[in-house]
Design a protein around this nucleic acid. Structure first.
Lengths: 196, 196
DNA sequence: TGTGTTCTACCGACCGGTCGTTAGTTGATG
DNA sequence: CATCAACTAACGACCGGTCGGTAGAACACA
């Protein structure tokens, strides 16, 4: 049943369990059981439970940033850049729901050194969004908004999809991304009618 | 140093610890140490660790809903209702940051029965927002939006404040609430210029 | 007011069990 | 015959929770 190497299996099983029960509530024994080996054998592939978590967060953050940069490549118009960024962010979070959920809720399980490393990557990622917002504000495409707060807002909003999204649900990933795009762009432009 | 009854102290200490370390990563011994008593004495006031968590979530949800209903009382205009709802939601989450953070991240620590109870209350709360959005859409004040997704989006967005807000930070609660109000109302109305 | 009784709020010791982790060993692969 | 990838067995630490016990306040009644 399990495909690929055992190390990958352990990681995949851990993602499932960390997503379902949380990092601290998941035991090495459970991961081993799910992987079809004894719990001691886990330590042949990973030095510690924390290293499994770190490995998950690391690859997730790497892929996330790579995905965003690919989506933005070659796009110059600031509004189109924001649309692409939102779409990339939403798509990645929904396609790799579990890992992203873990990345947003289990940072406390990391050692201080690993924590810093992940937070640094996250900050880099956020900075890309902040630059787009800032550019849009300066260029008059967006309203004169608070860049920091709005960037957090936009990211959290899209990330939130990963908490309730069900692949079998009412809407497709494309439709959800479209809804968010429209909402966010309107929120950034803040064009209001004067008929009130 | 500790004020009020011991039962309240235990709850307060637990809120601090659950917020800082998470429910599963917090031990009864730590709660006892923080409360200045032995761990056995915890069980005089609470029947289990889970009951402490449940008690926190219960009172938080109760207060949250009460707060919202009070804020909406007497307001009829749908746009004003949404503004008031957002402001109430943001304010409560920032003022009682720790409890709300726990309420949004530690539901998995509950027994199935308690879980259902809290989720039911959360659903009731969400329904109030959904009704406002739905009314606004029907009345033409808001665009024809996806009520469910937008309600989740709005709630998560405001809730997110509780993850990064620092009372000593750059902005006051009022200013943050104002930023969210403007962003959300623009996002709901979706008035765009046609100059593109 | 004095005395026996009950209640409150806590204590230290300890329970069975599980945790993450390590040591040493074994069977399969090349 | 060496290396890999798994195994069995066990470690100390700690977990949530329970136990019997107790100082002192509160209460009932003479």
């Amino acid at each position: 049943m399990p495909s690929g190497t055992m190390k990958e299996t352990i990681k995949r099983v851990s993602i499932d369990l960390f997503f379902k029960k949380g990092y601290f509530a998941t035991s090495i024994s459970e991961i081993a059981r799910g992987s079809g080996i004894q719990k001691a054998s886990i330590y042949y592939h990973y030095t510690s439970k924390e290293e499994i978590l770190f490995s998950i967060l690391q690859s997730t953050m790497d892929d996330l940033t790579f995905y965003l940069k690919s989506s933005l490549a070659g796009i110059d118009d600031v509004e189109e850049r924001m649309r692409a960024a939102v779409e990339s962010h939403v798509r990645f979070h929904l396609e790799r729901q579990k890992e992203n959920f873990i990345a947003n809720s289990e940072l406390r399980g990391l050692t201080p050194a690993h924590y810093r490393e992940i937070v640094t990557r996250r900050d880099e990622y956020e900075r890309i969004f902040q630059e787009i917002i800032s550019d849009g504000s300066k260029g008059g495409v967006f309203a004169d908004v608070d860049v920091k707060i709005l960037s957090y807002a936009i990211l959290t909003l899209c990330t939130a999809g990963a908490t309730w999204y069900k692949p079998t649900g009412r809407l497709t990933i494309d439709e959800i991304a479209q809804i968010y795009e429209t909402f966010i762009l309107s929120g950034l432009k803040q064009k209001d009618d004067i008929s009130s």
